[in-house]
Design a protein around this nucleic acid. Sequence first.
DNA 1: TTCCGACAGTGGGGTCGCAAT
DNA 2: ATTGCGACCCCACTATCGGAA
Length: 505
Amino acid sequence: MLLATLAHVSQEVAATSARSRKIALLAGLFRAAGPADVPVVIPWLAGRLPQGRIGVGWQALKDPVPAADTATLTIREADDAVTALAAVAGPGSQAERRRLVQALLGAATGEEQRFLIALLSGEVRQGALDAVAGEALAQATGAPSADVRRAVMLAGSLQSVAERLLADGPDALAEFRLTVGRPVLPMLARTAGSVAEAVEKLAPCAVEEKLDGIRVQVHRRGDAVRVYTRTLDDITDRLPEVTAAALALEGDRLILDGEVIALDADGRPRPFQEVAGRVGSRTDVAAAAVAVPLSPVFFDVLAADGEDLLDLSYAERRTTLDRLVPEPMRVRRVVAPAPDSAEAAEFWRATLGRGHEGVVIKALDTPYSAGRRGAGWVKVKPVHTLDLVVLAAEWGHGRRTGRLSNLHLGARQPDGSFVMLGKTFKGLTDAMLEWQTTRLKELALDDDGFTVRVRPELVVEIAYDGLQRSTRYPAGVTLRFARVLRHREDKRAEDADTVETVLGT
DNA sequence: TTCCGACAGTGGGGTCGCAAT
DNA sequence: ATTGCGACCCCACTATCGGAA
């Protein structure tokens, strides 16, 4: 199949907003693809490279390359070129990658170039990722979409399901079962504003500690242990403590779901940044493990003695977890039998008092919804707010093109100047974007085409989760997960919060 | 007809490893 | 030694489609 065919379909998918039309377009292309093209066509149209990380980003793609006049490039040839790119390493690799990228783009027409650049930079943005592509796959093959979805969760990727499905038909889906050693997409939680609100919806439910670390899925079969992240990357080699902990358990053929955190001598959790740094360290794991020892803490079990527990209720899975995992390695929790239970509020206070991030409220009767943001899990974290001053704004991309989007946030200093604490683009409705674009243009000092600096007069109310250490910003801290609540036209810059106030929180 | 679940998009900061300077 | 880049951790929130109620 020619790359031009695929690039054109991608463009059509991007051009329509109707999800049903996107699915029909993708399904048509999947049907037309030959068996040899399928392993490439499916991930490409879900916006992903089968080779994974290849070391090419916007920097390697920014130089324009003259386009070919006619479309001759095949999908196979383009895929081979990407494979060659992924293999480049060592001194001179950046230049070599750049050369290979330019050769590939030089063989492509304009439309093909646009698709390849989007694909290589991870910005296909056609309004269709795995879920929509999976739906199209079901349509193209006649398999029930619920079965395709379940197979994808259990396989951890669309691609492997697609290959089996297109080669052997819908019957092949039955082979995708929960298997110890093969990671499944983890269940995620939604957000609620308060514990009372969440318990109201979910009772009878449990309230669990929410630990601020790295999510892990631990598989153990005999002496073989593997540890996977939320995106199913294998990080076993970086977490020897987790392997040791898993081997010390009674049960076998296990899959456990939990979080790794770092604890001080007095049992209080250390900052997320330290945990992330530790998990990211791979060159000298032994030294890193001495500096920041990690503790795995589990909250769910997906398989025990090789048996699939996904469809059991949370209450039943938790009973199994309590049997298999000793108490210090399980998250603390209480059960709130009714919406007005006093236990929930008390547990929330105690959890925050111990220095943890928040709580997760879990309905007792829900199964493990792999890969979903299931309604059965709801997280609640404390929210702080500040009034800060907009110092500058950046022009948006995609659907925010032409709007000033990303705001630079400043806190007041005693001498009347401002110190930048971070940026945010979150929380803005289309109407707010429209309004702030107009307002900030009135305040503009200069515009370099990327950032518009403004007179520091517009006050915004910002919500955030807490402070974290920063080397990027002058105060030495930045806001974690800052988002805009509202513009405060009723406030002047002199009314904004000071750096002292921020640091005092 | 209205409501709501699922999905995609728009990016934030930090940290590590590697290559280039 | 320092800097720049890419990858991958953590993540909040809004808009939209289309099926459920």
